[in-house]
Design a protein around this nucleic acid. Structure first.
Lengths: 166, 166
DNA sequence: TCGGATCGTCAGCTCGACTGACGATCTGCC
DNA sequence: GGCAGATCGTCAGTCGAGCTGACGATCCGA
């Protein structure tokens, strides 16, 4: 359930003064809180956030090799091995040797994987909503837009980080 | 230098389509990028982000015990031990047994610690600016405000979670 | 004064991520 | 056709951050 449970009991005190304005602190703890909510939401499906993300990406794209998958998600390929091992053990996806290039394994969702993904996605969306609860529609959208901008900074002066070109 | 260096070489591709809109992904990667910038900025001073945060909090507050420090930063007290060990080894802070309660160690900055903190803080601020480069003043402020709102949600309907007062 | 709480410490564990190596396979080039 | 070099999946080992559980020293309230 997402590290950093610390003394959760000792009633939610605000941020320590000198850190309240540090972006690093804010980002870390926002991420932590969402991870926490997300983990609870996904727990009933026996998967965690990373695993859910893998399923999402596989579902979205044409059959991918492990390496392609890893690259898209910016995960190390050795890390992906374990991740896929796990999901395969849970029968949510399957490895198929690629007949065109026998070095590769093509990874696809199983029926069970698709079902689980559908339900898990909805549960996770709900957690995200709770996370954003209290924010206006605009603020939520704004947050995402700003985050994309700082993650994928415009290479030159112009334009926000490009936002996918489908 | 902040985990997740992955295939940094394979030219910065945008977010995988199905993840581009997931807050979890965005938060994680924003945090990652900032941590990366911050680590580079702090490296010359021989400290990392966590250590810098500890120095900041100590500097800000009256003499704190290790436990108080840990609580303020929402760090486990056993984790704090190692953190302080490290900073003490670097002579940036010192432990003093508290004469009033001999179970406690009061932690204070050394002169060297104060100097290092001053310089490191400025370097880190600069990194933060680079991170926010491309965002307008308003967007930067907005980002912090929104993050605070989601980290410390208003307990009931209305409250400090408020996000638009400009 | 004595039992229970508090504080600092330590050993051991988990988890995500990385490095380095290896065998199997593919590809370009002679 | 044959071979050097790249690519892919795998595995063992390591690292950092964080946690749990235990322990000794100390404090405090009944």
């Amino acid at each position: 359930m997402a590290r950093q449970s610390f003394t959760r009991d000792s009633a939610r005190l605000g941020p320590p003064a000198p850190l309240a304005d540090r972006l690093g602190y804010l980002l870390k703890h926002a991420q932590l809180r969402l991870a926490d909510l997300g983990a609870s939401a996904l727990a009933p499906f026996g998967i965690n956030g990373r695993e859910c993300a893998v399923l999402l990406v596989i579902d979205d794209a044409p059959p991918l090799s492990q390496l392609e998958l890893a690259r898209r998600m910016e995960i190390d390929r050795t890390t992906m091995v374990a991740l896929i091992d796990e999901l395969e053990a849970k029968a949510l996806l399957a490895r198929h040797p690629d007949p065109r290039d026998r070095r590769r394994n093509v990874v696809t969702l199983t029926d069970s994987g698709r079902t689980t993904l559908r339900e898990a996605r909805s549960a996770h969306d709900h957690a995200e909503e709770r996370f954003l609860d209290g924010l206006s529609e605009q603020d939520s959208a704004h947050l995402k837009r700003i985050l994309r901008a700082v993650i994928y900074p415009a290479p030159d002066g112009r334009g926000p980080g490009r936002t996918s070109e489908h």
